[in-house]
């Protein structure tokens, strides 16, 4: 058990997760589920990009529908930058219809998780995306 997933032991630097959601309650809930990780918050796609540049996250959780710049456009933008293109993205959204899933996957999202959030499933996907057991 050398590399414990829980960052609480301080054996490794904590994995950084950026949560991008314009709905504050959802963002707070996600932050709560992800305690133990170093979580950063952004309120829309544009802010998401700013935070991604400043914060260099290991994973991004993003909503699809947001003002200013939506989640899909945000990911497309992140992929233009070779220093950010490798960051995995999981979409968390109520918009779970086929078209959005297809758009999300086509811009390089790892997963699409429909609301309401299944916590166990979410944490499983997060661990998988971060490459931690």
């Amino acid at each position: 058990m050398a590399a414990l997933p829980s960052p609480l032991f301080g054996a490794e630097p904590r994995k950084r997760i950026l949560v991008v959601d314009d709905d504050e309650p959802t963002a707070r809930i996600l932050g709560h589920f992800l305690r133990g990780y170093d979580v950063d918050l952004a309120g829309n796609g544009l802010e998401g990009i700013e935070r991604a540049i400043a914060h260099r996250p290991d994973l991004i959780l993003a909503d699809v529908w947001m003002p200013e710049l939506d989640g899909i456009e945000m990911v497309r933008q992140l992929h233009r930058d070779p220093t950010l293109a490798h960051v995995p993205v999981i979409f968390v959204s109520a918009a779970g219809d086929a078209q959005h899933v297809a758009a999300a996957i086509s811009v390089g999202a790892r997963h699409f998780l429909a609301k309401p959030i299944d916590v166990k499933k979410l944490l499983g996907l997060v661990r998988k995306a971060l490459g931690v057991p």
């Binding site: 544009l46 990009i49 700013e50 540049i53 456009e73 933008q77 233009r80 930058d81 070779p82 220093t83």
Partner: peptide, 21 residues
């Protein structure tokens, strides 16, 4: 980031493949 997003979308629409840094 604001300028990057704005300009890269515009140039993309003009037929260029845009990468950003």
């Amino acid at each position: 980031p604001h300028r990057l997003v704005d300009l890269s979308r515009k140039l993309d629409g003009e037929g260029m493949t845009v990468q950003t840094l």
